[in-house]
Design a protein around this nucleic acid. Structure first.
Lengths: 204, 204
DNA sequence: CTCACACCTGAATCGGGTTTCAGGTTGAGC
DNA sequence: GCTCAACCTGAAACCCGATTCAGGTGTGAG
């Protein structure tokens, strides 16, 4: 989990180096999110992080490298936020709703996540896969456990997980990303609750 | 619907011109789908269409112009395929399932649609919006009609439409796009059917 | 205080892409 | 079989960005 972080030559980073690396990652979230991968030059990333272009290559050995690292970073953080949120639920349904809530909150704070994942299609297909696989894995596990404990009806956990993921992504895009910065409108949340409830109330 | 198609100078195209334009659009689907917008140079598009680079600019006034036109083209075709499919259903549920089936079939035949829409995020945000808005509009209309006629329970048609769209998109990506070319596995289709059924069986 | 190592600089190299343009080709109608 | 509008050609002008490198700067351990 907390491996030592190395620079491109394989040397461990000092506190100063770690700080610069972090600034580059934050700059990448901001610049990739605003301009997209292709219009975001390494010079712009470096500028945003307050360093010269050459410095960038002390930390990442290509433009793509920071993109990949950024996906890993955001993926870790969104999963953490969702787990944190859903863990407070007493029932599976409650947990699911809290997970969605955390997801929307994260989306609102980090709209770049969407935009970056979209671009991964061509910039870094393996990271696109990585992102969705890791996100769905948590879902599948939780759903399977709930099915086995008998808390919810029999369902295909894998399919249901991907379906819920798609549902959340689309609703998040429509009402958070394309919204005016306000939280999810009440009527949207109500319908969402109904949908999630009926997905979990399998009986067949 | 069937407006006369003009070249960049505003002159109507002859049969020969229309053919070249169509070849360029088909080339764009193939090349943008395979390489992505940024790695697909105008020269490569032209080559694939069997014309010289200069010819391209007789039909589209920039690289982005053909991208936008391609989104419109694919959007029109996928909606047509879905409408065609769902129109054969006797009930709303049947229609919905047939619509999904048509959508998956289209995705299988035109995987480029996904990849192109993904890139639209930065290449052409307005076309991203256009695509999802048009796709959801058909859904909303059909759902509203079914609610009003009392065929299905009360639900928020707009939210349900976007949710279903997200669901289909994610399942399509996971099992069609990332699949081995086979149609949707039976167990996936079964769970999908259950999900769609319960979304439509609103009672609250 | 000073040495050594980690860190930083930014101009130059190198490759590649969009778009233009001056001129050649095709074919439908007469 | 001629004519002219519609089409097509492809090399070159022009612009931009990833990556490198030769040489400076900050700082903490002794």
């Amino acid at each position: 989990m907390s491996d030592v972080i190395l620079n491109v030559d394989g040397r461990p980073l000092s506190k100063r180096g770690l700080d610069t690396r972090r600034r580059l990652l934050d700059a990448a979230e901001k610049v990739f999110g605003a301009l997209g991968y292709h219009d975001a030059s390494v010079v712009k990333l470096a500028e945003e992080a307050g360093v010269a272009a050459g410095t960038y290559y002390l930390y990442f050995d290509s433009k793509k490298a920071i993109f990949d690292e950024l996906v890993r970073d955001l993926n870790r953080r969104v999963r953490h936020a969702m787990k944190e949120g859903s863990s407070k639920g007493k029932t599976r349904l409650e947990a699911e709703l809290l997970g969605f809530d955390a997801y929307f909150r994260f989306t609102s704070d980090h709209p770049a996540l969407y935009r970056i994942i979209r671009q991964a299609e061509f910039v870094s297909p393996e990271m696109l896969h990585y992102h969705y696989d890791r996100l769905s894995a948590g879902y599948v596990e939780a759903l399977k456990a709930a099915v086995e404990s008998g808390e919810i009806g029999k369902l295909d956990a894998e399919v249901a997980a991907w379906a819920l993921m798609g549902l959340g992504e689309m609703v998040g895009m429509r009402w958070i990303l394309w919204g005016d910065g306000a939280p999810l409108p009440g009527r949207v949340w109500d319908e969402l609750e109904r949908l999630i409830r009926c997905v979990l109330e399998a009986t067949a």
